[in-house]
Design a protein around this nucleic acid. Sequence first.
RNA 1: GGUGGGAUUCCCGAGCGGCCAAAGGGGGCAGACUGUAAAUCUGCUGCGAUAGCUUCGAUGGUUCGAAUCCAUCUCCCACCA
Length: 426
Amino acid sequence: MLRDAYKDLKERGFIYQETDAEALQKLLNSEPVTFYIGFDPTADSLHIGHLLPIMAMRRLQEAGHKPIALVGGATALVGDPSGKSEARPIMSKEIVAGNAAALKSQLSRFIDIDNSIFVNNADWFHDLLYIDFLRDIGSRFSVNKMLTAESVKMRLETGLSFLEFNYMILQAYDFSVLNREYGCKVQFGGQDQWGNIISGVDLTRRMNQAEVFGMTFPLLLNSQGQKFGKTAGGAVWLDPTRTPVFDYYQFWRNCDDADVGKLLCFFTSLPIEEIKALSALEAPAINRAKEILAYEATVLAHGKAEAEKAYLAACSKFGFSDPDNKIPTSSSVKDIKPAAGGVDDLPTFEVPAEELEGDGIWVVKLLAMSGLCNSNGEARRLIQGGGAYLNDERIGAVETNVTAADFNDGSLILKAGKKKVKRIIM
RNA sequence: GGUGGGAUUCCCGAGCGGCCAAAGGGGGCAGACUGUAAAUCUGCUGCGAUAGCUUCGAUGGUUCGAAUCCAUCUCCCACCA
């Protein structure tokens, strides 16, 4: 039983480019199709930038198709020049292998691993001899043509090493191998992958005499036209040790008004009609749409329990946008009781007792120690700028000291700006 | 291999031998305004309580004094072969 996966992707805005729309739609509606998406293990965690392909994978799987998740253990050693203005530092084989394992476990949160295939292209590139490779595969590529690829053209200005130049060929070969071994018929990828994908489609046709397809997803930009998923601290990661769940939730919660609808389509499974209604909400009610987005996205990445915690922590801090559940939604967020009362999931920091003796501890030092500020200097500037709060009262002077008297029942609340808070305990 | 150009604080980029912790922009942070949004305006943006300390690809040198001059090295880029 197949759902119309093509229509689903189309409606939700996933489709940017495709090789043969009509034939692809027909294929997806006539049989369970094996498809693949590749991820290069360039870090030990995926980040939000990877999420769009992952969500597409999930939707396709739910519609009855079979995903292959390819981890590029070999290609990461080469480095994809697509969409990058300069070469990345070359990574050691050990690091790449470690990253590959980490990615696999993260991917398994989003897709049903029992019904998917995990492969690592290091497996087939490992034994390939250079001369054989040149003869069998290299002979089928035209340098003239490769030079016209957007990803290559862009780098002709700044420089492109021969190593990176090969990337396209390697990725193309991946497709042909997956087609031969697993009957893989479609490759999906980000917008910048178009060149690599079509060269794979071409190569597979020539090597295997098989008709295969490619499709790319749009590049996500926020409404300012900046790359999506980057914040002050860099990328937003799926690994909770890199990006705490609360911050992950907040990333979505703080999205731009204009983007909520789009993001709900991509990153939640809510029905499209509901999304339309939510994103059409006016003024303050739009915040409910953001809460739903943040909650749903966090459920996917970190599980329901964690998402609830993040939701309650955020709402108890900033307020519930729809405490009475007036806005209809199918999201399970509506079942969370705001009345849970006393929910306080603030990160804590324990001050060593000796610091509080005598005159107490200098606030600047405490701010820096607790991790709210990166240095004493930053803490001082924060106070001078009026952005530091002790038990919700603005700290007026840099010279302030914190003593045991500032603690209520052994704890006090220290804020750096409106969004960074820590509970300090003694 | 030859010749020329370059490497500056998170990024881009300006820097006269002293007035440079280093112009300007971007980004970031904070404040005001708000809806935990956007836009706008304001302040801050190497470390340090101060004295001071460490930074301008690396290492040495010249000088009272070097991001600025010299030597060597490393890496990039361009043109030629």
